[in-house]
Structures are given as structure tokens and as C-alpha cells.
Design a protein around this nucleic acid. Structure first.
Length: 251
DNA sequence: CCCATTTGACCGTT
DNA sequence: AACGGTCAAATGGG
């Protein structure tokens, strides 16, 4: 995917990175009260959304509605559960479930659900489908943290040792975004949403990323490329340094 | 019948 | 005792 699309995804990421950096500076200087952070945050979120949209599909979705509209878009009515394995990856749908639809390159099996005291929403527990077969101890927790639009936090734990990751074909070739630092909610209040993948984890980089506990929160609102650039927060001072070391993209 | 989900019970930690 | 995480029987869909 070394193409125009990859270039655009990179552009979006860099833009988001610049915004994040500016936000970091604002936070550091304690200017958070005098300067509205909303445009920055939105730009960051849109950056990731756009980048993910390129990663997710070779042809970026022609979304031109707002994020919230997009989220409200009715899902095709499906049975209470649906699985798609193989080249298309695994997708779980459940309209009334607190579980966000996800496709992170692995097959997960739900093994529990709990009401958490600190949250009005339930937390769902998943483990690798091949936990027994291949002694894979990877687990993840998914918790809804916000209602409207639905926002989920996914926490990955343990390391995938299974070889059964799904979605190996190049059509859905992976780009992985690794966050070396947990992003606080102050900075990134909108986390994973339903319907799309937080992160695409596949083959080559899976073990690496699953080695660490990741509290990965990526907003997944999809916006159109043109819309994204049209709505940008004003450009940042050219002196701003990018912190690429915090976001590593894997090919 | 197989397999994934649901859900109450159980267990470990604080 | 409260809480979070896991277990496992029951359930339901394919």
C-alpha cells in the first residue's frame, strides 16, 4: 500500500501529531484554561479517523456527513450475532450489545461481562478464541465509556502466541499504530467507537504489540479526506516538532 | 450437534 | 465486605 493512499494516511497522521503536540504544549504551559482545546482535540481525532479510513479500506469511504451522523447511521439489520472469518477478518455484530464491533485481526471469544462500579456501563471480557488450542493468553476488555456517540475503551492484555490471526490478505493489509504512552482522557476524551477497528493488528507486528498492555483509545469517526482538510484547525507554527516517536506505524 | 454468548457463581485482592 | 476478573452451566443460533 505504498501509494497515494498511504501518503494521505501519513499526512493525516502527521497533522494529528502536530495537533497533539500543540495540545501537549498547551497542557504543559498551563494554558488549557485560556485556549479552547476542542478544535485541537477534534482535529486529532479526525486525523486518526481519516488515517484509519485509509488503512481500513483501499478506497477511503466517501463520508461527508458529520461524525455523529455517521455513528447514527443504522447498521444493516443482522442476526444477533454474525461472524465473518477469513480474508475479511472477523466481525462481531450485536446491535444491542455493549460490545463494539471490532476487527483487530484476532478472533476473540467473550467469557464474561460485569457491571463496573465506576461506570454505568458494563465491561466485557474477551480472550483469544484459540486460548485453549494454542495456549494463547491474550485477552481484552471492552468497556463503553460514553453513550452518545457510543464510545468504547478497549484494553489489550497478554501476548498472542497463536498463529490464527485473521485477515491476512493484502487487501486489508495492516498498518499498526502503537502508542508508547497511554493517552489520558483529558487529552483524548473520545475513544474507540463501534463499527470500526481500533487498531489493525496482524501477523508481523502482533507479538510485538501484544507484549505490552495497551490502553488504546482511538477515535474512529470517519470523515472524508476533503472534509478533514477543510475543517482543519489552523496550521501550527512551523517550529513545532513532531513526536513521531510516540506513534509508530508498522507496515 | 457444535460453538459462541449469556449470566450467576465463585475466587482473589484490597 | 466490596470489587473486579474468571469460570462454567445454561441457552440459543446455525
Amino acid at each position: 500500500m505504498v501509494s497515494n493512499i498511504g501518503h494521505k494516511a501519513l499526512e493525516a497522521l502527521l497533522r494529528g501529531q502536530g495537533c497533539a503536540n500543540s495540545l501537549k504544549i498547551l497542557l504543559k504551559n498551563g494554558e488549557i484554561s485560556s485556549v479552547s482545546t476542542e478544535p485541537l482535540i477534534n482535529t486529532i481525532l479526525d486525523s486518526f479517523s481519516l488515517a484509519l479510513s485509509f488503512v481500513d479500506s483501499p478506497n477511503p469511504p466517501p463520508y461527508h456527513e458529520s461524525s455523529s451522523q455517521n455513528m447514527a447511521r443504522p447498521m444493516p439489520r443482522r442476526s444477533s450475532k454474525e461472524k465473518l472469518c477469513g480474508a475479511q477478518g472477523l466481525v462481531n455484530y450485536r446491535d444491542d450489545s455493549p460490545t463494539p464491533c471490532s476487527n483487530d485481526g484476532f478472533a476473540w471469544r467473550k467469557y464474561g461481562q460485569k457491571t463496573i462500579k465506576t461506570s454505568p456501563h458494563q465491561r466485557c471480557y474477551y480472550r483469544c478464541t484459540y486460548a485453549k488450542d494454542q495456549n494463547c493468553n491474550a485477552t481484552k476488555r471492552v468497556q463503553k465509556i460514553k453513550d452518545n456517540p457510543p464510545v468504547y475503551r478497549t484494553t489489550y492484555m497478554g501476548k498472542h502466541v497463536c498463529t490464527a490471526s485473521v485477515g491476512h490478505d493484502d487487501t486489508h493489509s495492516s498498518k499498526m499504530i502503537q502508542f508508547d504512552q497511554v493517552v489520558s482522557e483529558l487529552v483524548m476524551p473520545q475513544l474507540t467507537t463501534i463499527d470500526h477497528q481500533v487498531i489493525t493488528m496482524e501477523d508481523k507486528v502482533t507479538d510485538y504489540i501484544m507484549n505490552q498492555e495497551c490502553d488504546i483509545d482511538i477515535n474512529d469517526y470517519l470523515v472524508g479526506y476533503d472534509q478533514f482538510w477543510a475543517n482543519q484547525f489552523p496550521p501550527f507554527p512551523s517550529g513545532d516538532t513532531m513526536f513521531l516517536d510516540n506513534i509508530a506505524a508498522f507496515d
